[in-house]
């Protein structure tokens, strides 16, 4: 899932792509504004002029663009991410978890007088199937975790947990953390 923040590695091609998008957005906004304000038709092409003027800045003033790029990430994207994550988690907690908690719990707090010892499952080496264990290979694929999650939800009789999937996806979308998985051989020797 693409995170909210831009890539932390500010390579030239990423900087230029970002700046081109910003220039395009500003140019389009100018054109739309001229159209909304019923200005003469020729002014609606001013957006193109804005694009032509702004876009080359990524080549001539790379340092400026780099600062703006990092400012976008640090001052806008990360702050938005924090706020959106906090709100989403509170909604989940105060609505979904609170409601589903009303349906009771399978957690055995008090024993029925006998031992609460549970034998270990030789196949899985676990005493309970409740914890969600991600299978590494599957979880690392872009949507592999959903398949694994669904499997766990049905096997552990936690079908209600499927309702959390949209929120989990949304939380990934608004995250500002990027999984960097550069290979060991990607950087050169020196």
């Amino acid at each position: 899932m693409i995170p909210l923040s831009l890539p932390p590695e500010d390579r030239r091609i990423v900087l230029r792509s970002f700046w081109f998008l910003i220039s395009l957005t500003v140019g389009l906004s100018v054109s739309v504004l001229c159209w909304l304000l019923n200005m003469p038709p020729w002014t609606r092409a001013s957006g193109l002029l804005v694009l032509v003027v702004l876009a080359p800045v990524a080549f001539s003033k790379e340092d400026v663009v780099r600062r703006l790029y990092h400012a976008w990430n640090n001052r806008i994207a990360r702050r938005l991410s924090s706020v959106a994550t906090a709100i989403t988690l509170r909604i989940c907690l105060l609505l979904i978890f609170a409601a589903t908690g009303r349906a009771g719990s399978r957690l055995q707090i008090r024993g029925s007088g006998g031992s609460m010892w549970a034998g270990r499952d030789a196949a899985t080496n676990r005493t309970t199937s409740v914890p969600f264990q991600a299978v590494a290979n599957v979880a690392s694929a872009p949507n592999g975790w959903i398949r694994n999650y669904l499997r766990w939800a049905f096997q552990s009789q936690n079908v209600w947990a499927i309702c959390l999937i949209p929120f989990l996806c949304f939380l990934r979308m608004v995250s500002a953390e990027e999984q960097t998985s550069s290979g060991a051989n990607i950087y050169t020797l020196f």
Partner: peptide
């Protein structure tokens, strides 16, 4: 219960998603 509250929660998330969307599109 989870289904019902999920629908309510998704409606509450719509304004947040609308605010986030342009920035996510930039990314």
């Amino acid at each position: 219960l989870a289904l019902v509250t999920t629908l309510i929660a998704l409606v509450l998330l719509v304004p947040i998603a609308l605010v986030i969307l342009p920035f996510w599109l930039v990314s």
